Amino acid sequence: MTRVLLVDDHQVVRAGLRSLLEAVGHVEVVGEASSGEEAVTKAQTLEPDIVIMDLAMPGMDGVQATRRIVALGLDARVLVLTIHDEDEFLLPALDAGAAGFLNKSAADTDLLGAVEAVARGHSYLPRRAASLIARRRARETPRPGPGDVEALSERERVAIVLYASGCSAREAAEEMLVSPKTVEGYIARAKSKLRLKGRRDALRFALETGLVGREGETNPDA
Rank of each mutant, 00 (worst) to 15 (best):
E184A: 12
P144A: 15
R136E: 07
Y186V: 05
V51P: 02
E37I: 13
E208D: 15
T66E: 03
E184L: 08
R67N: 04
V149D: 02
L90W: 04
D61V: 13
P146R: 15
E47C: 09
A96T: 04
L207C: 01
R137T: 10
C167K: 11
V158M: 07
E215P: 01
V4S: 00
S168G: 07
H122Q: 06
G100A: 01
A188W: 12
E140P: 01
A190S: 10
R139Q: 09
P126R: 02
S168Y: 01
N219M: 12
A190M: 06
A56M: 15
R135D: 07
E175L: 10
D49A: 04
A173Y: 14
E215S: 07
H84F: 12
S19A: 12
L6V: 07
Q11A: 13
P58L: 10
S105F: 01
E37L: 12
E150W: 13
G25F: 15
L17G: 00
E140I: 10
A99P: 02
V4W: 00
A138C: 06
L20Q: 08
V161Y: 07
A106V: 10
V29W: 05
A169K: 09
K193H: 12
Y124D: 03
D148F: 14
K181P: 00
D9I: 13
A107V: 13
A65V: 09
V4F: 02
L5S: 06
A130C: 08
R204D: 03
R200L: 03
A206H: 11
L211H: 04
V4C: 00
D110G: 01
A98R: 00
L211V: 11
S192A: 14
A96Y: 01
A119V: 10
G216A: 05
G213N: 04
I133N: 00
L91W: 00
E215Q: 04
A56P: 01
V4R: 00
L46V: 07
A138R: 13
L21C: 07
G73W: 10
Y186K: 07
A93M: 05
G25R: 08
A117P: 02
V149Q: 04
L207T: 04
E174H: 14
P144E: 10
S168V: 07
R137H: 08
D9G: 05
Y163L: 11
V7K: 03
A159C: 13
K193V: 11
A159D: 09
A129D: 00
H84K: 06
C167Q: 08
A96V: 06
G36E: 04
